[in-house]
Amino acid sequence: MGPTKAPEPDGFPALFFQKYWHIVGKDVSKFCLRILNNGDSFFSFNQMNIVLIPKTSNPTKLGNFRPISLCSVLYKVVAKTIANRLQAVIER
């Protein structure tokens, strides 16, 4: 996850979590584990913005844009953990 690759919808880039992990790490871990292990609601963080990035210097058609989704860091952590858990099951 790039530390400043794209701004997140919640306003906190990955760099914030990396730099202040000693302060927020315990709360982030608890939050993610509650979602993964207890099935707590993830609705408030399961929102993202879709942004169109121009492929050319003067885009004139929709095809000249590349869509990207801006997800929160917490969403990315939970999604990556789920993907890793599924990968262990799928590879059997």
Rank of each mutant, 00 (worst) to 15 (best):
N58P: 07
A14P: 00
S44D: 06
K30N: 15
K26A: 15
P9W: 00
M48F: 06
N58E: 13
N49E: 10
Q18L: 08
W21Y: 15
P3L: 03
V77A: 08
I53P: 07
K80R: 08
P67Y: 03
S41Q: 14
F31A: 13
V28T: 08
S57G: 06
S41Y: 12
S69Q: 12
F12Q: 02
L70D: 00
K80P: 08
S72R: 05
F42A: 11
F42Y: 14
H22E: 07
N49Q: 10
V24Y: 08
N64Q: 12
S72Y: 00
N38D: 15
F42Q: 05
D40C: 07
P59K: 03
I50A: 07
I35R: 02
L15C: 11
K55M: 06
P59N: 07
K26H: 10
F17R: 07
Y75Q: 02
K30A: 06
N46I: 07
N49F: 12
I53W: 06
A88V: 11
N37G: 10
N37P: 02
F12A: 06
C32F: 05
R66V: 04
S57N: 10
G11D: 03
Q47Y: 14
F12V: 05
A6Q: 05
R85A: 08
S29T: 14
P67H: 03
G2F: 13
I35W: 00
A83I: 12
Q87K: 11
Q18D: 09
I82M: 05
R34W: 01
S29Y: 08
L33V: 11
C32T: 14
F42I: 09
S44F: 09
E91C: 00
Q18N: 05
T56M: 07
F43E: 15
Q87C: 05
L62R: 03
Q18M: 12
K76I: 09
L74I: 11
S44L: 10
L15M: 11
Y20A: 12
K61P: 01
C32N: 06
D40Y: 12
L15N: 08
N64D: 15
V77Q: 03
G11K: 00
N46F: 08
T4R: 15
W21F: 13
M1I: 01
K61G: 05
F43G: 12
N38G: 07
V78F: 01
A88Y: 10
V78G: 01
T60L: 09
I50S: 02
N58V: 08
T56S: 15
W21G: 12
F31I: 11
V51T: 14
G63Q: 11
P7K: 06
R92F: 04
V73M: 04
P13V: 04
S57E: 14
K76F: 02
L86N: 12
E8H: 02
M1S: 02
Q47C: 13
R34C: 09
D10G: 15
L74Y: 04
Y20Q: 13
G63A: 08
P9A: 04
T56K: 15
A83W: 01
G11M: 04
P7I: 13
C32G: 01
A83S: 04
P59E: 04
I23A: 10
Q18K: 13
G39Y: 07
S72V: 03
K76T: 09
F65I: 00
L70C: 14
P9H: 03
F42L: 09
H22F: 12
S69R: 02
Q47G: 15
P3N: 02
F45L: 13
L52N: 15
